[in-house]
Every structure is written in C-alpha cells, then in structure tokens.
C-alpha cells in the first residue's frame, strides 16, 4: 500500500511544526533584520541627504563669504593704494619743502658767511689802506691823515646842498631845545680840529650849542656828526666800495663769465 494514513497524519503534523519552527527561527528574524537594515539605510540616506543639503548650504555660505572677503580685500587694497599714493605725495612734498628749507638755509648761511668774510676782508683792507695812506701822507706831504680827514669833512659840510637842507629841516625851530650834537672820530681830535669843526657846523647849520666829541675805533676811518637822530659822515668807505666790488668779482669769477 503506497499510502499509509499514520504517516500522512504524522507528516501533516511534522510539516505544520516545521512551518512554525521556520517561521520562528528563519523568516521572522531574517525579514526583521532585512527590514531593520532597510530602515537604517533609509535613515542613513536621509541623513546623508540632510548632510549634503547642509554641506551645500555651508558651501554656498562659504562661497558668499569668500566673495565678500575678496570684495573687501579689493576695496581695502584700493583704499590702501590711494592712501599710500597720498602719503607718498605728502612725504615727497615734505621732503621737497625740507630740501628747499635746507637749501635756503645753506644759501643764507653761505651768504652770511660770505658777508662776514667780506666784512673781515674789507676791515683788514681798510686798516691796511689807512696804514698805507697814513704812511704815504706822512712821508710825502708831512701831514697826518686825521687832520686831512677833518679838513675833508669840513670841506664836505660846506659843499652839501640837498643833504644839508634836509638836515636843517629835521632840526626843531627853537635851538634851545636842541639835543647836544655828537662828533665821532676814530682818533682823538686836537683842540684846533675841534674848533674848526664847531665853527663849520655853526656856520653851515646855524647851530650854537656845544658839541660832544667821542672816539669810536671801529668807525671806518672817518668822522661823523650826529644830531637829533640825523647823521652826517665822511669816511673812506665809499672809496673802498669800488675796491670791494673788484675784490668780490675776483673771488667769484663765475659771475663775470658770459
């Protein structure tokens, strides 16, 4: 007999038990694991998408920031360039001013020094000229230079025209209120010379008051009459002026060059 009913029943039960066992130990755990994995993968994909979105957003923000920084840098560079140019111009201007200042100062110093040297040369020349003239006059004419100067001064007082008129005009009308006139000379004048000068002044300017005589060694070997802020003088300065010019030209030959 091919069919055994007990075996059929037993196999039925066996099969149902196997169905339960496999459900319990195979399908449920495996399907659960698959489902869980799918959920996890879905979650990971979702997270990845979120992260990607965030990354894209951050990337966009960074790009925008980089652009902003670039713009700022360009603006700052332009500003800095402008400022640097301004500063350069300012410094250049300052440097030019300083150069001009120092050049001018040097020029002035040089002028002053030149003037001092000229003055010393002239002083020395005057002294030398005076010494020579004094010796020549004494040797040839037997007269002293100082007496010749007094004579020349008196002679000049009488020859004054316009200067004399101006001098008289400056004097006050009342002679009583007159200041005392001063005669300055390099050497001591003799009484005779003093008298001659007083007479000449009285005659020329109509002044009666007594004169005061002073000795001024630094005076350019001449004689001065000072009164009421006005001065009349004779010295060899004028004679020396041409000599000074010639000496000056000699010391600065480049000025003569065409």
């Amino acid at each position: 007999m091919l069919i055994d009913w007990f075996t059929i029943i037993a196999q039925l039960i066996n099969f149902l038990i196997l169905v339960w066992l496999l459900k319990r130990f195979l399908y449920k755990p495996i399907l659960h694991a698959i489902d869980e994995r799918e959920t996890q993968i879905a979650g990971k994909i979702s997270n990845a998408e979120t992260i990607e979105l965030n990354a894209k957003k951050e990337s966009d923000e960074l790009q925008a920031k980089i652009k902003e920084i670039d713009d700022q840098r360009a603006t700052l560079l332009a500003k800095a360039a402008t400022k640097a140019e301004t500063e350069r111009e300012r410094l250049l201007e300052e440097a030019k001013k300083e150069i001009a200042f120092f050049t001018e100062k040097r020029r002035k110093d040089f002028k002053r020094e030149e003037k001092d040297i000229n003055k010393r040369i002239i002083q020395q020349m005057q002294n030398e000229v005076f010494a020579i003239i004094r010796k020549v006059l004494l040797d040839l004419a037997g007269t002293k230079l100082e007496s010749q100067i007094v004579d020349a001064f008196i002679q000049r007082l009488s020859e004054l025209d316009e200067d004399k008129n101006n001098f008289i005009k400056s004097l006050p009308s009342s002679s009583n209120s007159l200041d005392q006139g001063i005669i300055r000379s390099t050497t001591q004048l003799t009484l005779k010379q003093r008298k001659a000068i007083e007479d000449a002044i009285s005659e020329n300017f109509n002044i009666k008051s007594e004169l005061q005589f002073e000795i001024v060694p630094d005076l350019f070997s001449g004689i001065e009459f000072i009164m009421n802020g006005q001065k009349l003088a004779w010295s060899i300065e004028d004679y020396l002026a041409s000599l000074e010019t010639k000496v000056h030209d000699f010391l600065n030959p480049e000025k003569l060059a065409p």
Binding site: L2, D4, T7, I8, Q11, L12
Partner: peptide, 11 residues
C-alpha cells in the same frame, strides 16, 4: 513517499 506528498497536498 506518497504519504508525505499527500500530507503536503492536504495542507
């Protein structure tokens, strides 16, 4: 076994 196949078919 026909018994098994019958059992499965009955299921």
């Amino acid at each position: 076994s026909l018994s098994t196949t019958v059992a499965l078919a009955l299921c």
